[in-house]
């Protein structure tokens, strides 16, 4: 056995390694295997991520966090979480029964708060991010926020098109990693319509204070991108090139 006791570990040269990266280095060994403590730590983190993927979306709770603003709730064509995971195409289209809830208007921006692959991320971070952003956009005509269940990023294209919005911003739960089960992504698309490509969007990822990006910093970046997108009448690769440090690149689906 080569498992080290805590007192041995304090003089362990591998402690230096552990201080240099968040990767799971210097874990020690039980023969060839992982010692029990790091093995269970991995299982704990995987359990948190798995539970986040399968957690149901509490759209009413997010709506309450946005009150007194009026919100609209819609669903995608996926019937349940299992179908959502197998059929990303269904998560990109509105349930036909919900289409009539979205009526056309004259909006600069539509904001969609969508469960994506981590409802807990949306529960924790979507409303504060949206409110911080709205506060930075005086004079913008912003449609009532849309709460979307079993949604992929591209559902925002249909929602934005239905609302007649010039820009759509989708705040959505990112695929959980072991280190972050509750990371929020923000995807911005100019002139939304069905069939937009991912290369036509800009993304700010890892909104997750205190470990990731904070609400104020995320809202600053998003407001910058929104103004640039409105000024240049586009989003996507060419906008990102100009903003450089502002754009993220986390692919969702």
């Amino acid at each position: 056995m080569t498992v080290q006791s805590p007192s041995e570990r304090s003089t362990d040269p591998l402690a230096r390694l552990r201080a240099l990266t968040e990767a799971r280095v210097g874990l020690g060994r039980a023969g060839a295997a992982l010692p029990t403590a790091p093995m269970l730590a991995f299982q704990r983190d995987h359990a948190l991520a798995r539970d986040a993927v399968h957690a149901p979306f509490d759209a009413a709770g997010v709506a309450a966090a946005l009150s007194p603003r009026t919100t609209v709730a819609v669903r995608s064509q996926a019937r349940d979480r299992a179908e959502y995971l197998r059929r990303p195409d269904l998560g990109r289209r509105l349930d036909p029964g919900d289409v009539a809830r979205l009526t056309g208007g004259d909006w600069d921006l539509a904001i969609v708060l969508a469960d994506g692959l981590s409802a807990p991320a949306v529960h924790a971070h979507a409303a504060p991010t949206a409110l911080a952003l709205i506060a930075r956009l005086p004079g913008w005509r912003i449609a009532p926020p849309v709460l979307a269940t079993l949604a992929r990023v591209a559902l925002g294209d249909e929602i934005g098109a239905r609302l007649g919005a010039r820009l759509v911003l989708v705040l959505i739960g990112e695929r959980p990693g072991l280190s972050a089960p509750d990371s929020l992504g923000a995807y911005l698309t100019w002139s939304p319509r069905i069939g937009r490509l991912d290369s036509e969007r800009n993304c700010v990822s890892n909104i997750r204070p205190p470990h990731g990006l904070g609400y104020e910093a995320a809202a600053d970046t998003l407001a910058w991108l929104l103004r640039a997108a409105r000024g240049r009448r586009l989003t996507g690769v060419s906008l990102k090139d100009d903003s450089d440090s502002h754009g993220g690149s986390a692919a969702l689906d």
Binding site: A23, A32, P176, S179
Partner: peptide, 22 residues
């Protein structure tokens, strides 16, 4: 061979140095 099977950049799980040893 990924430290602890957890790729902290790509956010997925692969095989670890321990797995290779095993």
């Amino acid at each position: 061979g990924v430290p602890g099977a957890d790729d902290v950049m790509l956010n997925y799980q692969s095989t670890s140095f321990h797995d290779a040893l095993y």
